[in-house]
Nucleic acid binder design. Sequence first.
DNA 1: ACCGTTTGTGTAATCGTGTGCACAATCTAT
DNA 2: ATAGATTGTGCACACGATTACACAAACGGT
Lengths: 332, 332
Amino acid sequence: MSGMSRRRITSKELAKLAGVSSATISRAFSPDSRIGSATRDRILAVAREHGYQPNAIARSLNNQRSRLVALVVNAIGNPCEAEEQQLLVHRLQARQLLPIILCCADHSDRLQLMRLASTYQVDHVVVFSDMVSMQDAVDIFHTTKPIIVSFEPLDNENVSSIRIDGAQAADEIIDKIVRDGKKRFAYLSGTSSSWIDKLRRKWFADALTKRGLSFEAQAFGDYSYDSGFKEAVLLLHRDKVDAIICGNDVMAIGARDAARRVLGKNTPDDIAIVGQDGIAMAAWDCNDLTTLSLDHVAFIDAVVELIERHDAEVEGPHSITLTCTARWGSTA
Amino acid sequence: MSGMSRRRITSKELAKLAGVSSATISRAFSPDSRIGSATRDRILAVAREHGYQPNAIARSLNNQRSRLVALVVNAIGNPCEAEEQQLLVHRLQARQLLPIILCCADHSDRLQLMRLASTYQVDHVVVFSDMVSMQDAVDIFHTTKPIIVSFEPLDNENVSSIRIDGAQAADEIIDKIVRDGKKRFAYLSGTSSSWIDKLRRKWFADALTKRGLSFEAQAFGDYSYDSGFKEAVLLLHRDKVDAIICGNDVMAIGARDAARRVLGKNTPDDIAIVGQDGIAMAAWDCNDLTTLSLDHVAFIDAVVELIERHDAEVEGPHSITLTCTARWGSTA
DNA sequence: ACCGTTTGTGTAATCGTGTGCACAATCTAT
DNA sequence: ATAGATTGTGCACACGATTACACAAACGGT
């Protein structure tokens, strides 16, 4: 029972033990197939006794369905993505789908990594990372329609997308900061290359333009606390800004710390700081961030909805749009 | 090229296109096998043209090696685990191994989830979660020797383990706090059931005993910020403690916030707070936590070392011990 | 010129399941 | 009582790759 049996028992061997054919074994494990209930019970009993379970690899080969899902992410460690990943993993597991994580840290291996995963015949692909282009995803997973988290509608019928709109909420946030008397705005980007970053910045830029203002300075980080801290020092010291819009919440926390520690400036009186994502940590008492927030549960609901449509083989390009809201804290 | 070809091309089809047998196709993709270099080049060219790549599922069935690794974790979102997960995922990917994440939130589905993953013939299992017992891991993955992150040596030859020892560092930390004049200590557990939690507590309890002290109070959280905040309020208000040792860094941050916000007490003068894990966030300027810290890189090095031994089929039970160090911040 | 070795390729079996088809046995209806 | 529908099971093939074995061709040494 708890002994270390090196080899796993096979369906044919179990068939011999139960006095049936291997086909019947298979049927015993398929919920709706023609098999006598007595036979099934007997087989399941023998199977339990010998620790038999159908080999998912063999089944996948036969079925053409692996029940594996590839999740393409920037990083696992960064809380700004992790909360959503966590939710999705739970939802997948509830459907007996297993997630394979593809972590795209540096550019060089990214495509090769995706190609490797594609050879496992994954049933679905969810691209969270803004480091991978839509075209690459389509080319590499050419038999599996990818689900892409984008910030604009994609006119590609081989892709389903989740579009996120924060223009309205950005406008509300800028409105308050301007009314508080701030004048010199800076945008602190997460990455230099990503078009998602460009769109996020545009939400705020448009709100500024509407009020006759614009970004006086811009800096580029890498979504990390350290980069937020370092770039904020430059923005505050060199460019004398009094409001910083950050590409995510973690950088905003870094920027707030830099303002307080290095320049002795406090939020929201001396300087306004805004995050993006609305992660749980942003609401912690020590942070209490003002942030452009996305409803993570609704977001993952949308991902699951798209997965279901793909499973049901609903035709046509699919796109779901979600709207951000402003979460008010004491930093702006 | 970038068209959506529904079906993936098979090795036999490619063989016909290249005018060879399917065996030769296979050889073209195996680095060291007897094949003419001219033939190989031609095949690789044709393969690239038609987007062919060997089907990993079929290969796994034949090889008995899937190149999949199951990672059993408590949560993805919690930074205290996430940093290590991130490191390990990178190391695995560098070896062309794909990680399957098993996220064990509630107990009921945990075993069933592990059983599901075991049917995919994973090559390795790494158990980070302290919610799953060693015996369950061995029983479920009975053909794959699991690697377990434990805090004591496991006398089971079907398991390899990484043992973590923080007794020395805990002693140093308690020493400083006692010298600072603190008298009433509390321990804030991460979970009630876990024996890892019991051992961590013991490190500190022993250090207290050595000095004629003991824990005046104890509380149980769930490793989250909110639980740290809530339990700390009770400990400070009801039990009047002036030092709290927390089960991880995130709860320590919650406790620090509770002390400051609800009771108006500051660290380290009014109260001492200690975390465990030593995550990056603990060193952020706004936190600056004193914490019992583990070297994450060394930790993951050890995991990879064990994976290598398993691959090399080195016999015998393996165990690697790591030692924690104290990281000094301004909270104790 | 001959034999032994090396090299390159094809044939066929194998990995462990799922399932269409055939067939016997049991059940239902007139 | 008999035709027809239904149920339960086995046989054999398919899924897409890897690989032991066989064999022909090329090569090298005396």
